[in-house]
Computed example of a mutant assay.
Amino acid sequence: MYWRPVYDRLFGFFELTVANAQHMKAVPGHKTDKQDAEWIADLLQHGLLKNSFVPHREQQNLRGLTRLRTTLVQERARLVN
């Protein structure tokens, strides 16, 4: 969930790719913390990263409302119990 504010701010200005971290780790190669950004950029340039699904703005808003409703119903049930 940490990527969302950054994605929302940069959307429309750049071509953005949200990649699956598990898939990135599965690609063979050696990386360290210092070389992490270079490694990810190299994987992206060579087409070795798959794009993750990022829903459209309307669907994100609907999902957010659905999650909020679920949380409120659970909280209400917790208070009643």
Rank of each mutant, 00 (worst) to 15 (best):
M1T: 12
M1Y: 06
M1L: 07
Y2W: 06
Y2D: 12
R4Y: 10
P5Y: 01
P5L: 06
V6W: 02
Y7K: 08
D8K: 04
D8L: 03
F11A: 15
F11S: 13
F11N: 12
G12S: 02
G12L: 05
F13Y: 14
E15Q: 15
E15D: 15
L16A: 05
V18R: 06
A19K: 04
N20I: 04
N20W: 13
A21Q: 12
A21L: 12
Q22T: 07
Q22V: 03
H23M: 15
H23W: 12
K25N: 09
K25Q: 13
A26W: 06
A26L: 05
V27C: 11
V27G: 06
V27K: 06
P28A: 12
G29K: 10
G29T: 11
G29I: 07
D33L: 13
D33S: 11
D33Y: 13
K34S: 09
D36N: 10
D36C: 01
D36I: 05
A37V: 15
E38G: 10
E38L: 14
W39L: 04
W39Y: 14
I40L: 15
A41D: 02
D42E: 11
D42M: 08
L44I: 00
L44Y: 00
L44D: 06
Q45K: 10
Q45A: 15
Q45C: 07
H46W: 03
H46L: 08
G47L: 08
G47R: 02
L48W: 01
L48P: 00
L48D: 00
L49F: 03
K50A: 15
K50Y: 09
K50D: 14
K50P: 01
N51V: 07
S52Q: 07
S52C: 14
S52N: 09
S52H: 04
F53D: 10
H56T: 05
H56L: 06
H56C: 05
E58R: 10
E58W: 08
Q59P: 02
Q59S: 07
Q60R: 15
Q60L: 14
Q60S: 04
Q60N: 01
N61T: 13
N61Y: 11
N61D: 12
L62M: 08
R63Q: 15
G64W: 12
G64Q: 11
L65V: 13
T66M: 10
T66V: 09
R69P: 01
R69K: 13
T70P: 00
T70R: 13
T71H: 02
L72Q: 07
L72M: 14
V73C: 08
Q74Y: 01
E75S: 05
E75N: 08
E75Y: 02
R76W: 06
R76Y: 03
R76C: 04
A77I: 02
R78E: 00
R78N: 00
L79S: 04
L79V: 13
V80Y: 01
V80N: 02
N81P: 00
